[in-house]
Design a protein around this nucleic acid. Structure first.
Lengths: 244, 244
DNA sequence: GAGTGGTCTAGACCACTGT
DNA sequence: CAGTGGTCTAGACCACTCT
C-alpha cells in the first residue's frame, strides 16, 4: 500500500524532507534552543508518513543539528547547552580527564583581512575582519595561545560585544549575540616551534615544540564563519582524536 | 498489531539483536570480507521482523563493522578493501590531497613488554611482544618514524610473517594472517622535539618539532590489540581532524 | 526470476513530558 | 490527560545482482 508511486526524482523522500527542513533551519526559522514542529505536524504538512519524517530528523540529530527528547520534542542544537560546552575542545590531561579551559583576553581589533584569511574564510579582498587574541589556561597555567579571525560582516562589532560579555567561550556568544550556530569544523594539526611571541605568552623557550591547531569552523551548509589558530603546550596534555 | 507485548528487559529489541550478531562476529563466525546471513534469515531465526534486523545491521554498518550492497548482501568490513586502505592515516599534503605512504622496514624483534606497553595494551607483566620499527615516506621522502607494539599472544611469530609478506600496511596483514580486524582507534597527539634517533632517521636536526601520534588500535568490543607511536615531520603535511 | 538491501506507508504500543 | 518521540510489526514496491 505504498504511496507516491510516481516519484520522478531518484532522491529518497526522507532525504528531500531533510533537505527542506535544514533549509528552513538555515533560513533562521527556529533559533538555537527553540523547538521544531512535531513529527506529526511535519508529516501532515508535507503529506508524507510519520516514519519518513522521523528518518529525516533522525539524520539531523545524528549530524548534531537538533536534539530530541522523548515526551518533550525536537530542539535546535545549541552550544549554550551544558553538555555542548567545549564540544570542539580536545585537549586532555595525562590522566585522560578533559578539563575545561579558562580564557584570558589579550586583544581584539578590527583589521583588513589578510590574503590567507580571505582564502581560508572565503571572503572578498579587503573585507574587514575582527581579530581576537587570547590565552587559555588549564589547571591554572597558560597552555594555549589562540588567534581568532572572523568576518565583520557576519559578526558586526564583535570586539565591542566581547568587551561587554567577557565570554569564556566563543560559540555560545556567536549564538546568543548573532544567531550563528557552529555545527562542524576542520582542524589541521602540526608541530611547530615557539616564536618569540608564543614564548613570552606561554612562558616557554623560543623554539620549544608546540602543537598548532588550525581550525575552520562552519555553520549550516558547511559555510566557513571562523578561522582560528591555537598554539598549545602539550607537555602535560594531549589532543585526543577518536577514529572509527 | 505490535508483537512481543511482554518484554521484561528495558533494552530495545534491535539493540539486543545487534549485540547478539556482534557477539557472533567477535566469535569469528564470519571472517572479514565474508557475507553475513540476509535480513530475512536473521529475522526468521530470531523471530523478529525484518525491520528490527535492518535497524540492528544498519547500526553495525554505521560503526564500520559491516558493509552493505543492494542486491548483493551484507559483508564483514575489511581493510583489504581498496577504499579502506589507510583508513586511519590522516596526514594530508598542503594542497589537501591525501597521498598514501610507502613503508621502509627498519627492524622487528620479540621482546618482553615494557611497563608502558603492559598498561596501554592491557597485558600481563612479562608478556612477550613484537616491536616493529619502520619509516614511512610521502612524496618519496621519509616523513614518519613508526614504532609498533603488539602482543605475541595475539599475533604469534609476527616478525617472521612480516619478513615473508613485506606488507605496506599492517591492518590488512593482521586480517589475512591472523583474522584480527581493527575496527577503531584512539590517537593522542603531541608536539615533541626530535631525539637523536628521530633526527637521524628522518634527516632533521635534533630538537626539531615533530608531531607525535600515540595510537591504540582496537578490535571488536574495544579490545586493544596494537600500540603505535608515530613521529611525523609536519613541514609539508598536516594531520586532518574533522569535527562534528 | 529469485534474492538482496533500501524506501515508504500504516498502525499499534510504549515511556515520558507537560497540563 | 493529550502530545511527544521511540520501538516494533507487516506489507508493498523499488533498484540492483546473480544465475
Amino acid at each position: 500500500m505504498a504511496k507516491k508511486p510516481v516519484r520522478p526524482t531518484a532522491r529518497p523522500l526522507f532525504a528531500q524532507i531533510q533537505e527542506i527542513i535544514v533549509e528552513r533551519l538555515v533560513a533562521g526559522e527556529w533559533r538555537p534552543g527553540e523547538p521544531l514542529p512535531s513529527e506529526n505536524e511535519f508529516a501532515e504538512f508535507y503529506n508524507v508518513s510519520q516514519g519518513t519524517v522521523r528518518k529525516a530528523i533522525a539524520q539531523m540529530a545524528a549530524d548534531n543539528l537538533v536534539v530530541r527528547f522523548r515526551g518533550k520534542g525536537t530542539f535546535v542544537a545549541s552550544h549554550t547547552d551544558e553538555r555542548e560546552h567545549s564540544h570542539f575542545f580536545h585537549l586532555h590531561r595525562e590522566d585522560g580527564v578533559k578539563e575545561l579551559p579558562q580564557t584570558i583576553p589579550i586583544s581584539c581589533s578590527k583589521q583588513a583581512a589578510t590574503p590567507e584569511a580571505v582564502a581560508r574564510l572565503g571572503l572578498t579582498n579587503g573585507t574587514p575582519v575582527a581579530v581576537v587574541e587570547r590565552l587559555r589556561t588549564l589547571d591554572g597555567a597558560a597552555r594555549v595561545f589562540e588567534t581568532v579571525v572572523v568576518s565583520e560582516e557576519v559578526f558586526p562589532n564583535l570586539c565591542e560585544s566581547l568587551r561587554d560579555a567577557l565570554p569564556n567561550e566563543m560559540y555560545p556568544h556567536y549564538e546568543t549575540e548573532y544567531g550563528v550556530r557552529v555545527v562542524c569544523a576542520q582542524e589541521r594539526l602540526r608541530a611547530v616551534s615557539a616564536d618569540p611571541r608564543d614564548a613570552e605568552l606561554l612562558d616557554v623557550e623560543v623554539g620549544a615544540p608546540l602543537l598548532e591547531i588550525d581550525r575552520i569552523a562552519m555553520t549550516y551548509g558547511d559555510t566557513p564563519v571562523e578561522w582560528r589558530r591555537s598554539r598549545c603546550i602539550t607537555s602535560d596534555h594531549f589532543y585526543l582524536s577518536t577514529l572509527r
